[in-house]
């Protein structure tokens, strides 16, 4: 049986209860995964059931909802299934299973979580703000995982006096800090009027980036390993007027 969720935590937990006793269950949020001969149920979120499942799971492992939140943010298409297998094991063992790394389901879940947290760490460095005319900062990004709101605490604690917008252009939403509060909002496209000196600072940054490199020691493979090309799109050091990497 295939249990199709709407991608939310409540829907997942409802599906979890329904699918629990079915060892071959598939839980997914993308209808493209339908396979032949399998019956499909659409699971709509049921708040009461979800709360019951959450309470029960928390009694086995008080940190497990954090795992679930990270798993459901993953950009992997099989994320619900990975989470289902992990939480099924947790419910069967009735104690934290996080460290059972020789178990395939735990391994899958821990790798999936690691990818999400690793991307958060990477983006702490790779986000690039543009300064707008009003002094607010704007950063477009398209992360693999749905993490844009998880980046806010980091930037808020280091730039408390600057309102900023972290815009996930892929998922068309933005995490906003207005100088006091933070919130998530849908955002299709942003119109940003840049400050008068923005271009000049970008040019200086490009100059710096070029000058600090040691050309005799080229190691492009290593560079791209640390900073995959998909992140370059929003970095001013790669939008230089003269082509740099040839």
């Amino acid at each position: 049986m295939i249990y199709l969720t709407d991608g939310t935590k409540e829907s997942f937990l409802t599906a979890f209860l329904l699918a629990f006793s079915d060892g071959d269950a598939l839980v997914s949020s993308s209808p493209t995964q339908l396979s032949l001969g399998q019956k499909t149920v659409f699971v709509s979120a049921d708040a009461a059931r979800a709360a019951r499942a959450e309470e029960r799971l928390l009694s086995f492992d008080k940190d497990c909802m954090n795992d679930l939140s990270l798993l459901l943010r993953s950009g992997m298409s099989g994320r619900e299934q990975i989470a289902f297998r992990y939480f099924r094991l947790l419910a069967l063992q009735k104690r934290p299973v996080r460290d059972m790394l020789a178990d395939e389901d735990v391994l899958c879940a821990s790798e999936c979580i690691r990818k999400v947290t690793y991307e958060i760490h990477r983006l702490h460095g790779f986000v690039r703000f543009l300064e707008s005319a009003s002094g607010a900062l704007y950063a477009p990004l398209s992360p693999d995982n749905d993490v844009v709101d998880l980046l806010v605490p980091h930037f808020r604690s280091r730039l408390p006096e600057f309102p900023f917008v972290l815009h996930d252009v892929k998922r068309k939403k933005a995490a906003v800090y207005d100088g006091k509060n933070t919130f998530l909002a849908p955002l299709e496209q942003a119109e940003v009027v840049l400050s008068a000196s923005e271009q000049a600072w970008q040019t200086l940054w490009q100059r710096y980036y070029k000058s600090v490199n040691i050309p005799q020691r080229e190691r492009l493979k290593q560079m791209k390993g640390y900073m995959p090309v998909r992140y370059w799109k929003f970095m001013p050091e790669f939008s230089s007027r003269e082509p740099f990497l040839t």
């Binding site: 760490h121 702490h124 460095g125 790779f126 604690s157 280091r158 730039l159 408390p160 006096e161 600057f162 980036y209 600090v212 490199n213 040691i214 050309p215 020691r217 080229e218 190691r219 492009l220 493979k221 290593q222 560079m223 640390y226 900073m227 970095m235 050091e237 990497l245």
Partner: peptide
């Protein structure tokens, strides 16, 4: 951060990588 800009990041943070790796 005690007002103003910036704070420490105990784990360290890489912001970019140059072609020399």
């Amino acid at each position: 951060n005690t007002g103003g800009m910036g704070n420490g990041y105990a784990a360290g943070c890489c912001h970019s990588f140059t072609p020399d790796g």
